[in-house]
Computed example of a mutant assay.
Amino acid sequence: MEGCFEKNTKFERLVDGEISTFPSENLTTIKLKASKNIKEFLLRRKLFPEQKIIEDAKGGWLIFETKVGFLNDIKGVIRYWMPEIFVLEPLWLKDEFLNELQIYLEKERKCCYTC
């Protein structure tokens, strides 16, 4: 059934250029700080979509930013690299991680004493 609809090139470019689970025009910029323990890995390979180095402190921290349309994609990667990576911006995302860690620690303490 040829010619039923026309391709929308705007959406086609959006889907082709997106590596997140769900393509989006509304991207969130996230600024991260990586320890020297994973710095070389991040310099050799783009771990995050749209990864852009902001500051490379010799022998120390690496500050970079990325843009994502679907936050759960990046949250999993950040959790994987903890405690070697830190969210600098946006502050609400940093607060989300700190809150999750607090809840985890409280549950861990309860589990250890009751199990």
Rank of each mutant, 00 (worst) to 15 (best):
K10E: 13
K10L: 08
K10Y: 07
K10A: 10
F11V: 04
F11W: 11
F11N: 05
E12R: 00
E12K: 07
R13N: 14
R13Y: 04
R13M: 07
R13H: 10
R13L: 08
L14S: 01
L14I: 02
V15D: 07
V15F: 03
V15A: 05
D16M: 13
D16A: 15
D16E: 15
D16S: 06
G17T: 09
G17M: 06
G17E: 07
G17S: 14
E18L: 05
E18P: 01
I19E: 11
I19Q: 15
I19P: 06
I19D: 15
I19N: 14
S20R: 11
S20D: 12
T21Y: 11
T21N: 07
T21S: 13
T21Q: 09
T21L: 10
T21G: 13
T21V: 14
F22N: 13
F22K: 13
F22P: 02
F22H: 14
F22A: 09
F22V: 15
S24N: 01
S24L: 01
S24C: 01
E25Q: 11
N26V: 05
N26T: 11
N26Q: 12
N26R: 03
L27N: 06
L27Q: 11
L27Y: 00
L27R: 13
T28D: 08
T28A: 05
T28Q: 11
T28L: 09
T29I: 04
T29D: 15
I30Y: 03
I30L: 07
K31A: 06
K31C: 00
K31T: 02
K31I: 01
L32P: 04
L32F: 00
L32A: 05
L32Y: 03
L32I: 07
K33C: 12
K33H: 04
K33D: 08
K33I: 06
K33L: 02
A34R: 02
A34E: 04
S35W: 01
S35E: 06
S35L: 00
S35A: 08
K36N: 10
K36A: 13
K36Q: 14
N37W: 10
N37T: 11
N37V: 13
N37A: 13
N37Y: 13
I38N: 09
I38L: 07
I38K: 08
I38P: 04
I38C: 11
K39T: 03
K39M: 06
K39Y: 03
K39I: 12
K39F: 07
E40N: 10
E40I: 10
E40Y: 12
F41L: 14
